[in-house]
Design a protein around this nucleic acid. Sequence first.
DNA 1: CTGAAAGCGCTAACAG
DNA 2: CTGTTAGCGCTTTCAG
Lengths: 328, 328
Amino acid sequence: MTIYDVAKECGVSIATVSRVLNGSGRVSSKTKEKVLAVMKKQNYQPNPFARGLGLDSMKMIGVICTDVSDAFYAKAVSLIEEYSRQIDWNVLLTCTGHGKEEKYKFVEFLLNKHIDALIIIGTPFVHKKDLYHFEKLGSRIPIIMINSYMELPNVYGIICDEAAAVQDAVDKLQQQGCNSIAYFYDSLTYSGRQKLTGYRAGIKKYHLNAKCELEYKVEKSFEQMNTLIKKLLAEKVFFDALVTSEDILAIAAQKILLQENRTMPIIGCNNSILAQCSTPALSSIDNRLDILCKAAIEVLTKLMNNETVPTKMLFTANLVERESFQAK
Amino acid sequence: MTIYDVAKECGVSIATVSRVLNGSGRVSSKTKEKVLAVMKKQNYQPNPFARGLGLDSMKMIGVICTDVSDAFYAKAVSLIEEYSRQIDWNVLLTCTGHGKEEKYKFVEFLLNKHIDALIIIGTPFVHKKDLYHFEKLGSRIPIIMINSYMELPNVYGIICDEAAAVQDAVDKLQQQGCNSIAYFYDSLTYSGRQKLTGYRAGIKKYHLNAKCELEYKVEKSFEQMNTLIKKLLAEKVFFDALVTSEDILAIAAQKILLQENRTMPIIGCNNSILAQCSTPALSSIDNRLDILCKAAIEVLTKLMNNETVPTKMLFTANLVERESFQAK
DNA sequence: CTGAAAGCGCTAACAG
DNA sequence: CTGTTAGCGCTTTCAG
């Protein structure tokens, strides 16, 4: 079933059919109805490749992140897919994994399909080289970065102000009497750097000369964090509260501390499903993926309509307080 | 940069360029090298839409599930994307959500992009009507169902034998002395029915006349399960072990029981990240998504090469025993 | 082994 | 308002 078949059955030209298909150009309502009727009856679906060839677009948006099996990215992809679908755009997904190879090849994999826009979740790209690639890419299609940013033409950052949130959390803990707040983080992505900055700012605010000597970098894994915490306890390192860049780190710590019968306020990040499942329920900084992703699609929509949009949008995070916050 | 530009620069016809592009037809190694060199130099990428139009394929596979933000589906999508990419296929993702609407429209959303195959994870489709749709669809492209199945032409099921696994778990618990094993499940998807069957078989095996009176259906949510467990405890319903169709149900139960200072063996399903984060660490039935997804892509690959593949493949699940198994 | 040319199905001037 | 026609960039006969 092609546009020719429809045209023939309607007794009109393919141009007319194309017009009603695209709502472009005036068509008498009478012929329009006839065409629509035939289309419906024959369940006609225009060939997307032919259409793509003509319009140079198949209404597909590329989404890239390091790993969808991670709860955070999964949530983001889920939201992006949903909002995209609502405006009739398909999502082409690619994950880079955590490997060290040239990450840009993953973008090219998507680009080979002539996507209309690229959404990058988090910070899969860290090499200087990537910057150059994105600069070139930006001249073709818009690039939206969720919780990350590069200052380049046609690149738009949708960011959650995690620095402020972490600082705020540290503030609250200090007001509660904690004065040895440890911070555990797994990576220095854009978001990771923000959080670390927030932590340091929070500490500094109270102890003007304090060094941030309770910062620990650890792999994002339950086991690794377990090991680290055990080690610190063995070494009698003192801390009376704990903030982590990821819920899973917080939870690993919680578990050990529970075993040792020590309790203290613990705050995670991402407000993932893990937070509510943990014992005690984990307080967590919610970086508002729902809002970020919705904003991303809105930006995209506006760009397609040639409307102006801010190159960077900052949203406030939200500390969700649960049992682990008051823990003494 | 089109095929014409490459042809011109090489001093050959576009047909020749096309031939080296596709490895179709004999081309003298000399011209072949020249063409390849120019392609590389110009970083020529064939237009996917034009190619799609000619070949009626853009090497895209549709993946559909109810909700990628769910850890189980996220893992599956992640694996499928990875394996697909390795054979140079892109993944077009769509989620149906849990709504009650006509689910087939989500498939059509994918179909409108002329995907080459469809992978369905789990059981997003339950209506009789869908069967008819898939029958028709099967005549166009292969349909792979992961942990689900419909007996239709060109539909292939890749399934984990969760019935056996749950039955086995119940067996073990009974051997351990438990005789009031409760089962909590959230849905009667294909996989859900299998697990329930397994539970019943396990119970029957020991108590020939036993009715399965400790079966509870509950929404897949931490809160709902919490409520249910509290209610059962309040009603003094007796059970001395617990199996659930989803890790999160097990974890919700664990948490309440821990608060009440009651411990008993608990076994979940899916072996998600939640399992290891829980206290005590949750034993869980691993349904081998890695193997299922790899098999799915292998089936697809073979189908593309017109090789014969089984319409249904069954893999053995794997009980991962952790602290919660021995809990007394 | 290579080139000419006819599609693939649709869009968008352009002409009426 | 509608039809004719020339692309879009690539694949694939069919000749040579």
